[in-house]
Write a protein that binds this DNA or RNA. Structure first.
Length: 305
RNA sequence: GGUCGGGUGGCCGAGCGGUUAGGCAGAGGUCUGCAAAACCUUGUACAGCGGUUCGAUUCCGCUCUCGACCU
């Protein structure tokens, strides 16, 4: 029964979409319009020192609107989706204390899903165990991981990730920590959130998107991306630096690539990344796709009180 | 003009008388704590024309073409 005294739910507006679609600007415009704050959902913009290469909002933009989880972590930190879920919920609660609308902006689909739909209560990864499993994989190959999984979690063994060492290692890790099969712990039950959301994806047409990506790469170089990457060179083994742009520039520093080839590869790999993001968004029926041109107006209309 | 090498799918690149090279790109896809990551699916191409052969991308000849060297 609908009550007159039901307090209206707080609302979360998600601005996602592939890299280079123009999310940042739209999110800032919306934040200004709704007088609220932005939580970034980007697995790489979270790191300090990657300002140019991950296209973080610049100083002026950051002054316009309060941002969260931008340049907030040291590059030696191993951040992850589970942590993001916790952090984002916490920040969101603070924002909702005095605002009715909050904005999440970012292209890391897994992080957004974690926030919106929650993750099962699986154990976090244990660094020591993770290192050990990585070592075992290096020494004994994929076959070893596969046979371990077949033993501990036959149901998972039927899944399609049997050639994916990364997923195999995580599954094994969960089996070992919990003493239970990984697949038995994946309940797939969505936690209920005390806010409602609108999940938008900014999506230019493919040719336009690729043009933007190519141009933006050139702009980054112009802004000093090479110098920024040089500073990060000593940290190349950190997960934070397993990132499009930095990887290619590291090869350039190693003398493996010409600058021309480096730029070409950065553009190409960024396009590949964008395509994967689109694939991710496509399968989610909550996602509302919008053109960059009219996205702001439509979102404004759909969310005005 | 002569000699010697080469010409393989959008690109790189093996190979061989009869069997799928492979990689990259492109396209599509997977996705529960590394996600800008990791992984999966997808391409019948051998310069052209003749010849040899049961069979030629692979052998021979010619043509075209690229490169190197010589005159």
């Amino acid at each position: 029964m609908v009550s007159f005294f039901t307090t209206p739910l707080k609302k979360l507006i998600i601005i996602s979409g592939p890299t280079g679609a123009g999310k940042t600007n739209i999110a800032i415009q919306l934040a200004l319009f709704f007088q609220t704050e932005i939580i970034s959902a980007d697995s790489r913009q979270i790191y300090k020192g990657l300002e140019i290469g991950t296209a973080q909002p610049d100083a002026d933009q950051l002054k316009l609107v309060p941002h969260h989880l931008i340049s907030s972590h040291d590059i030696t930190v191993n951040y992850n989706a589970g942590q993001f879920e916790k952090d984002a919920l916490e920040i969101l609660e603070r924002i909702f204390n005095h605002k009715n609308i909050a904005i999440v902006c970012g292209g890391t689909g897994l992080y957004i899903d974690a926030l919106l739909y929650s993750m099962d209560d699986l154990p976090f990864s244990d660094p020591a165990l993770r290192t050990e499993l990585n070592q075992l994989y290096r020494d004994n190959g994929l076959n070893y991981l596969q046979s371990q999984i077949e033993e501990r979690d036959p149901d998972f063994a039927g899944a399609s990730d049997m050639k994916n060492s990364q997923r195999l290692i995580r599954a094994l890790e969960v089996c070992i920590i919990s003493g239970l099969p990984y697949s038995s712990l994946k309940k797939g039950v969505k936690a209920s959130r005390d806010f409602e959301f609108k999940y938008y994806a900014i999506l230019p047409d493919r040719a336009e998107l690729y043009n933007r990506i190519n141009q933006r790469t050139l702009d980054m170089i112009e802004k000093g991306f090479v110098t920024e990457a040089q500073k990060m060179f000593p940290f190349r083994d950190q997960n934070a630096l397993r990132t499009v742009g930095y990887k290619e520039l590291f090869d350039f520093f190693d003398g493996k690539l010409s600058m021309e080839k480096t730029i070409e590869l950065i553009q190409q790999h960024t396009r590949n990344y964008a395509k994967r993001q689109i694939t991710w968004l496509n399968r989610n029926k909550d996602v509302i796709f919008l053109n960059p041109e009219n996205a702001f107006d439509i979102i404004k209309e759909q969310n005005q009180a």
